[in-house]
Design a protein around this nucleic acid. Structure first.
Lengths: 237, 237
DNA sequence: CGTCGACTTGAGTTAACTCAAATCATGTGG
DNA sequence: CCACATGATTTGAGTTAACTCAAGTCGACG
């Protein structure tokens, strides 16, 4: 866990912190208190923020850019657990469990992150239980997400996971059928638990079957119903 | 989410609650308060406590017996996420997220569980932040466990997951090399994300390779080093 | 002793992997 | 503006771990 980025000035920090969903509604006093103990860092693309096994002395919030949380196998294969963007916290697990980070975190692009030291944050939670409830809601969301990931990996085949991801993307973009991948296909492969070759073939089969139209990073959903079927039944394309 | 079991009397309930790790150290006042709003249930083996998609009006704590949390695929294949025993809470995710249960819960044997209604529990947390911190620690532990499960499913092969499970069992029994499975092999298969046939063959190969000795539900670890290798490198047996 | 569930074993199939190579996209220096 | 380097993606061919289906075998219990 190195800190190579230049620390940024404190000006406007309170404003940034106030806009983080986790801290929404937090009284000004607490926000200013947080601003005093926070460390901001500007990090280049590909920077390893922490590694699995590192001691967790605090957690992070992404302000700009994107960060992936991932595991690596002995042979070097990678499984992405999450991709976090602006406003999302990460690396909170060690804050509450006195154990090292369970996975790696690395920037996907040039990013600005805030670091919150563990002890100060726990102390704040004790004085402001609503913050604890927000954190619990956050954790609940993560557990739900992992439940989904385990189901996908264990009970669905690659086309099913892919269809589920495309529908998720579409939902996130208010039901839009024209999707633009905001990650590379290699990253998408790692996110749904496969490799680029297999992903490429699965996309190809879906396109040939008329479920989607492909154009580089742009994907158009042509048959949402059929796509839902694939997602839920793991059915052959 | 039905309540077929006879509710048990309140006598000794406070004592039972006090012995639940989640509530350790909680002042007597709060314990008695909890005892007033809790519902105890005796459930037969194989009883479905809640199903995926059910509204979560509260969470549970296992007092006796065992409970599995699991997902089912469209074709009926099952993936066990957790097996909880005495003192362990489950079904807490909806308490903090206003969404339905993300998975199913079913008793593996005759069990007694306590049910804690959501609102009252959240109210208690607000008044007693240490409880929030305990719940956060619980959630951290769960997230860590899921991280491990995802890694196993995505990055390891069946022999690797099996070896990891055997070593985990051994650790849990203070490093003992003589293990006794406390679940059926079908359940173990579901827990490590495979099917009984594949598990059986994997165990057979490990035994033939001299890593373990098999005798029904009793397994003796003969070569811990080799077993660790298999667990970490997913290496061929 | 028969039956049931748990477990094992055998044979065949397949989704997804590995390895290798071709293609495409983009950006850089000349 | 071109030629090439680099990384991303696709395609092809072969291999394999793990699955399905089917048929035992084993062990406990009424």
């Amino acid at each position: 866990m190195t800190h190579p980025g230049r620390d940024i000035s404190e000006g406007g920090l309170v404003g940034h912190i106030a806009r983080i969903p986790l801290f929404e509604g937090l009284p000004d006093t607490y926000l200013r208190e947080l601003a005093m103990l926070v460390v901001a860092q500007d990090l280049p693309k590909g920077h390893e923020i922490f590694s699995e096994g590192d001691e967790g002395t605090g957690f992070y919030v992404c302000l700009t850019g994107r960060v992936k949380i991932y595991k690596v196998s002995w042979e070097g294969k990678e499984q992405i657990l999450h991709i976090f963007g602006p406003g999302e916290p990460f690396g909170e697990v060690p804050v509450f469990s006195d154990q090292p980070f369970p996975a790696h975190a690395q920037t996907l692009e040039e990013s600005r992150v805030l670091f919150f030291p563990k002890e100060a944050f726990v102390a704040l939670i004790r004085r402001y239980p609503d913050l604890a409830l927000k954190m619990l809601a956050m954790f609940s969301w993560r557990l739900r997400r992992f439940t989904q990931l385990v189901e996908d990996l264990s009970l669905k085949e690659v086309p099913g996971r892919l269809a589920a991801y495309l529908l998720y993307l579409s939902d996130r973009q208010r039901g839009e059928v024209r999707l633009t991948l905001d990650i590379t296909k290699a990253q998408l492969a790692s996110l749904i638990g496969t490799i680029p070759e297999t992903l490429s073939r699965a996309l190809g089969r879906m396109a040939r079957a008329g479920l989607i139209a492909l154009d580089g990073a742009n994907i158009r959903i042509l048959d949402r119903t059929a796509l839902s079927d694939v997602a839920e039944t793991s059915g052959r394309i």
